Simulated assay, not measured.
Amino acid sequence: MKHRYILLYKPYRVLCQFQDQEGRSTLKDYVPIPDVYPAGRLDYDSEGLVLLTNDGWLQHCLTDPRYGHPRTYWVQVEGEPTPAALQQLTEGVVIQGYRTRPAIAEILNPEPSLPPRNPPIRYRRHIPTKWLSLTLREGRNRQVRRMTAAVGFPTLRLVRVAIANLQLGDLTPGEWREILPAERQALWQSCGRRFDQRA
């Protein structure tokens, strides 16, 4: 079986699966390739990078917390995060009785240039917003949103821009591409697999 490795910019309000009983938009609306599945999830109301593959070994590697692969998100939050809030995000915060692993949290300056979201976030003239870069090595359900809320700055928009060495790059919402051999090699090496091995 030939392994496929697809990078998709998942749009807002698209389920990170190929079927939905309620008729909502799914990955099937964007990726016409059979028998590939997302390596990890991205919430319905989040956007950005999803890796789709039929390589079960790699799917396991990327979703197993033991490997601790980094995932980077650009997060638009309500308000202007303080140094203390950034420090909390970096050291870990308690959400649902669990302390998150240490992360990398920085204010993005200048703000990122992203395609407009449809529908756009609600604009409130008297409440400022800021964009953060947040890199995690774990992926619990709605973790980024819960982390920023825990330090007092709710998430308004969330875009995943990197998974391990894979980057969102120039993809726009709904676009996809095959990963390059060099990207696949670096990804396999991060999991301890040689490039010339076959799963």
Score class of each variant (00 low, 15 high):
Q88K: 11
T100E: 12
P81V: 05
P38V: 02
G92Q: 11
A39Y: 01
V75M: 07
E47K: 02
A84V: 09
T100L: 10
T90R: 15
K28L: 13
V31K: 04
L52S: 03
I107N: 09
G40L: 05
L42Y: 09
L89N: 04
E78M: 14
W57Q: 15
L86P: 08
W74Y: 12
G97A: 05
Q59C: 13
P102Y: 06
Y30H: 12
E106C: 14
R41N: 11
L89S: 06
Q19M: 03
V50M: 14
R99G: 09
L89R: 00
T100P: 07
D64S: 09
G48W: 03
L49V: 05
V77I: 04
T26L: 00
R66K: 14
I33V: 09
L27A: 03
V94L: 02
I33Y: 03
G48M: 07
S46E: 14
Y67T: 02
R101L: 11
V93R: 07
Y44T: 00
Y44F: 13
G79F: 11
P65H: 09
V36I: 15
W74V: 06
L51Y: 01
D20C: 05
P81K: 06
Y37W: 14
V77T: 04
N54M: 04
W74F: 07
E78P: 01
Q87M: 10
H69V: 00
V31D: 05
G48L: 08
V36S: 03
T90P: 03
R99M: 10
H69A: 00
T72C: 04
R41Y: 05
H69P: 00
P38E: 03
Q59T: 14
T82C: 10
G97L: 07
P102C: 07
S46I: 11
Q96E: 15
T53N: 05
A105M: 02
L86K: 06
D55P: 03
R24V: 00
T100M: 10
I107T: 12
G79Y: 14
Y67R: 09
C61W: 12
E80S: 13
Q96I: 03
C61S: 13
V36M: 07
T90F: 13
E80L: 12
Q96K: 13
Y73I: 08
D55I: 01
D35Y: 06
Y73H: 08
L49D: 11
V77N: 01
V94E: 12
